[in-house]
Design a protein around this nucleic acid. Structure first.
Lengths: 193, 193
DNA sequence: TTACTTTTTGAACGTGCATTCAGATAGTCG
DNA sequence: CGACTATCTGAATGCACGTTCAAAAAGTAA
């Protein structure tokens, strides 16, 4: 009844975050107990408090980390033609979100469990991401490559459409992710060009 | 401490369902207590059990009722041209989902809180609804009106895009729902024609 | 008025929750 | 080895949860 053999914060810490991510995505923040997370990691509930001040912070840190990664990974080269930038965006969005399905799910579903301050921070990050796409559309309209009457609406429509892939795509199904990406790109392209 | 003046199941019953719908949408099924629902209605928690055998059933009945309404309201006339059928679908989907934002939110977010049996029933209804759109796309491809390489993917993409309106549209904003609908229809039309 | 049904209360039951903390064991470093 | 730090346990605290139920008040209908 004390420190256990082989225990290290460098190992337990990440495992706590991974377990919380998986369980929150699976059952929802409110339905997952600290005891359940601890059991998944293989420790008692009290040990979790070496890694987070409370359950709220655990959720927020997961969401904030995800959004920060998303913003860091999103690349855009304004010197490329708009249609090429848009194609890259579509491929990136589908690929990135597929690889982090649990975090994406949490970032969309658990916003209501955040305090006002934390909610505002996540929303600001989401807005920044959306602005990246909107800028591509605006530049494309300006150069005559795209015909979009409202870039804000088109931005939201495209993102909703692409993120929707996560709700049904499973590796090993009828189509590969590359094939799916090609089909979505074709629809997006035709919708704006 | 007993039956209260003016109490009637015809009044209390609907109020229980309305309160549960609103609160579940707001805070999530797991985070909303029976006591909170009762407080919203203005009764004690025990009284709720005159209207539902348990909390689970309350959730399922809301979801099932919503999906049944959706299927009943969705109209399609196979004799019309495919593009006209698709236009009607887009307008219907946006309008119907906007008018029932709470129920839509619950039907998407609380699937994981259903038992396996109940989940299967809701999924069957959702699948039936999606099939309606896919049939329109298939007919349009057959008649040469649409150019869609995979009607299943296009179905999911269009529905995700349209349902996304609920996450950002608020009456009284920059655009009316009719204007938004027109813009989405334009994007959908170009994506498939 | 009387007999009967409908509806609600308020208390109670057992369970599980997030969080705290003193104490104990394991790792680390001189 | 010895001193120190890092990590975890296990018990405890107080609270909120879903659900049940006997009793009581209100409605209903003769």
């Amino acid at each position: 009844m004390a420190r256990t053999a082989g225990s290290h914060s460098d190992i337990t810490g990440p495992r706590v975050r991974e377990a919380a991510l998986r369980l929150f995505a699976q059952g929802g923040y409110a339905a997952v107990s600290m005891r359940a997370i601890a059991a998944e990691v293989g420790v008692q509930a009290g040990a979790l408090y070496n890694y987070t001040p409370d359950k709220q912070s655990l959720l927020f840190d997961l969401m904030e980390g995800h959004m920060t990664e998303l913003l860091a990974a999103a690349q855009d080269d304004a010197k490329l033609p708009a249609d090429e930038r848009l194609r890259k965006f579509v491929a990136f969005h589908i690929q990135f979100h597929h690889a982090r399905a649990d975090a994406v799910f949490i970032a969309y579903m658990e916003l209501r469990n955040l305090t006002d301050d934390n909610f505002a921070r996540i929303e600001a990050q989401r807005s920044a991401y959306e602005s990246g796409l909107e800028q591509i559309l605006r530049d494309g309209v300006a150069s005559g490559a795209f015909q979009v009457s409202d870039t804000k609406i088109a931005t939201l429509a495209i993102i909703a459409m692409l993120t929707g892939v996560n709700t049904w795509f499973r590796a090993g199904g009828r189509l590969s992710l590359e094939e799916v990406t090609a089909q979505y790109w074709e629809m997006v392209r035709r919708a704006v060009m």
